[in-house]
Nucleic acid binder design. Structure first.
Lengths: 235, 235
DNA sequence: TGAATAGTGTCTCTCAGACAATATTAC
DNA sequence: GTAATATTGTCTGAGAGACACTATTCA
């Protein structure tokens, strides 16, 4: 702390409660799923909610690290994709008073975490379609809905859904993941055009069985950025 | 506070410093400008920075209200457009320690505020092109750059730039504002097609002088949402 | 009338959608 | 061979870009 600065009274304002939560999606068996955690603390002890928690200001360099730390506790790995969704705040979402949650939106391949979370009772994948029958902590149900809409939008103009797939994947797998996310079928031809135009994938020598003709495998080139196409796929 | 809940130790975690800042843009004389405020407090006392401050948890229902309250203090009016940009956090951006700022991104017609801010020494519009020659508080220069990029993106697939214009505006004015924002010319024809397709404007009876043929005036229909087009204008 | 700005007509170009045709695998 | 899936070819359509053309105003 700079000793020359005029004293700042940190108690002049009550700081709001500030937490970081993550909506981690995956696609498994043609279902869009979100990772939920059984809460071990009040409020909403025992309810299902998003993985998250307070910032550890001594250990977390940024809130990104906070999100990753909390996700790693639950899944044992870092998600393949992570970005800020938005914050949600008001005086009623947390019974303790005014609270702000910074929500991240993350993607991972189901295979990367399934073995780990299968061993933990307090963590589960829940199908988006089955959220309504679940009672959830805070406003997390509404937050998941926002995150889903963001994911659906991104699926129309970018290749982010690829981060729901393992390292090597085929066009058919990517097509299926996108279709699950946006809830309608797309043209394989359009997807192939985009795979070529995006220039963010490389073909793998080895092909893979698929029930018919062998399928070309791809992987994400290292160090590439997500391309944003100038047109959406049709809704 | 719910008395039945198990006690929660609020001091278990040091809460990070949490502030709300806004990047308020306008377009005036074919220049994109941002509203800056001369800081009245440490740190960075006397430097120029974004309007913002702490949440007043007793008075602000949401962080949106915090942003609006701070902007109104400086401009005397509410901006015509306001949305969350993103948060920025780390241990070094504020000398007091780990801090998080939630940044909003706002637009307003220059006419609505020029008379008011002209009376205040501590508030000024600064052209985006002249930011480099200014020493700014915190990481606000970088934040403004992020906000500018978001604005530029939005200008390509939506009509948000209209919120830099007064209630009644012409196609020529909107074209000019968009061109200033994205830094290149666009086709008047394309803009007119979008104005019709968006279905968010209504033509006003009265036309207005423009140096040549009288120009049709438009206004934003009340209660409409921003339309997102499925294609971008070309960059 | 000419300069200036507003507005229209229309052709091209790009890329998504549709879908037929072909290729490759397992059985 | 057939069934199943992968891949390519190619036509259509929507909407942006380009730009010529017309319309209206003022000096």
């Amino acid at each position: 702390m700079n000793p020359k600065m005029t004293p700042y009274n940190i108690n002049e304002f009550k700081n709001p409660l500030f937490t970081v939560d993550s909506v981690l999606f995956t696609v498994e068996h043609n279902c869009l799923k979100v990772l939920l955690v059984k809460r071990a603390n009040e409020p909403f002890l025992g309810s299902w909610g998003l993985p998250g928690g307070f910032v550890n200001v001594d250990a977390d360099a940024t809130t990104d690290i906070t999100a990753l730390r909390n996700l790693k506790e639950k899944t044992n790995v870092a998600p393949q994709y992570l970005e800020q969704l938005q914050t949600f705040s008001n005086t009623s979402r947390d019974p303790r008073g005014f609270s702000v949650t910074l929500v991240y939106f993350a993607l991972i391949a189901a295979q990367q975490v399934s073995s780990h979370i299968a061993t933990i009772d307090e963590v589960q994948w829940v199908e988006l379609d089955k959220l309504n029958s679940l009672s959830m902590a805070f406003d997390h149900k509404m937050i998941i809905e926002h995150a889903k809409q963001r994911l659906q939008q991104k699926a129309l103009y970018s290749m982010v859904p690829v981060y729901c797939l393992p390292e090597y994947f085929t066009v058919g797998q990517l097509k299926s993941v996108i279709e699950t996310i946006i809830g309608k079928t797309i043209q394989r031809k359009s997807l192939i055009r985009r795979i070529e135009a995006a220039n963010m994938f490389e073909a793998i020598d080895e092909k893979v069985k698929s029930g018919g003709r062998l399928a070309q495998q791809y992987k994400v080139k290292s160090g590439v950025d997500i391309v944003h196409f100038e047109r959406n796929l049709s809704v």
